[in-house]
């Protein structure tokens, strides 16, 4: 799991909620029941003493293992959403993409309705400039139609440049978050604009994993957004919660220490199967240790469940 560092100033606490859900799913038996040794009928005094000692030894081992695992899970709980791209269900990002792909929208921020009107006006002017007659009229109309089609090709969404699309996406973000007309400076607008830029650049990063400069720029933008949102939380928590909800982020993502490191790339599979970090022997050993611990605790639970059934006489 991607590690949340020790310092944590958020209100929503994924660790605590994760802990509670994991304990709720457990049955009502105490895990310590796993230590229970059943004395056979014909056990000698020495045998009984040995079993009791075994119980004592198991007790401290179980407590230690369960607590260690709990601590590990608390420290290594995952973020609620992707700290860079936010939630996948974010409607703001979805609609941003829709706005850019909408067939009726034109490039450079031109309005399609106004365009239609203007083209009609041009045709009308061209017609008025000529004398009547059907052939002339048809000729003028067909030329004007060609002109319109040419303009439509130039201004069509499919043909607009990446830069133009980016600008329109930013304008959309600004309009969604602005406090008043022409507001470009309030923290939520700045955060929204950097969110758009982050999404924009992440698309390129996926294609070009060697573009280190761009990765660094995005890293800085993520940090800047965090900083801006933290400021907003201090100053105007109501707006802050609105902004993060709309941007598809969560409080723990904003308030935790985070860097868009190679560990993040691997954890969230930014480049698919291509891993950025080599698994060192130390890492391997550490992972094996945790897996072993998990296995042991699972075993305690199984034994405890069996013992509970034996004691209470339920199969």
């Amino acid at each position: 799991m991607f590690r949340i560092p020790q310092r944590f100033f958020g209100t929503t606490c994924p660790r605590l909620s994760a802990e509670t859900t994991s304990t709720v799913s457990r049955a009502s038996y105490p895990v310590k029941l796993a230590l229970k040794q059943f004395f056979p009928q014909d056990a000698t005094r020495l045998k009984k003493r040995a079993l009791r000692r075994r119980e004592l030894r198991l007790k401290s081992q179980i407590i230690r293992d369960v607590n260690n695992l709990k601590q590990h899970r608390i420290k290594n709980s995952p973020y609620l959403v992707d700290p860079v791209l936010g939630s996948a269900e974010c409607t703001f990002i979805k609609s941003m993409k829709e706005v850019l792909e909408e067939p009726n929208a034109l490039a450079f921020g031109y309005d399609r309705v106004e365009f239609e009107k203007l083209m009609y006006g041009a045709q009308k002017a061209a017609l008025d400039a000529t004398i009547g007659g059907e052939t002339v009229t048809e000729k003028v109309i067909s030329t004007e139609e060609k002109k319109k089609r040419a303009l439509m090709t130039i201004l069509h969404n499919k043909n607009s440049s990446n830069e133009d699309k980016r600008k329109r996406a930013i304008a959309f973000a600004r309009q969604e978050f602005q406090r008043f007309d022409g507001d470009t400076g309030s923290p939520e607008v700045q955060a929204a604009v950097s969110t758009v830029k982050i999404h924009w650049n992440m698309r390129n990063i996926i294609d070009a994993f060697k573009d280190k400069e761009r990765i660094q720029r995005v890293r800085q933008m993520v940090q800047g957004r965090q900083k801006m949102l933290k400021y907003l939380k201090r100053n105007n928590p109501e707006r802050y919660y609105y902004a993060i909800e709309k941007l598809g982020l969560t409080d723990d993502v904003v308030c935790n220490e985070f860097s868009m490191s190679k560990a993040y790339m691997d954890e969230y599979e930014v480049f698919g199967d291509r891993k950025q970090l080599r698994v060192t022997p130390t890492m391997k050993r550490r992972r094996e240790k945790i897996a072993d611990l998990e296995r042991r605790v699972e075993e305690y639970h199984r034994v405890a469940r069996e013992n509970y059934a034996k004691i209470n006489g339920t199969a």
Binding site: P237, E238, Y240, Y241, Y242, K246
Partner: peptide, 12 residues
């Protein structure tokens, strides 16, 4: 904060 969170969901 919790109240704001709920409000934000409605507003969005």
């Amino acid at each position: 904060f919790e109240k704001y969170e709920a409000l934000a969901k409605e507003r969005v």
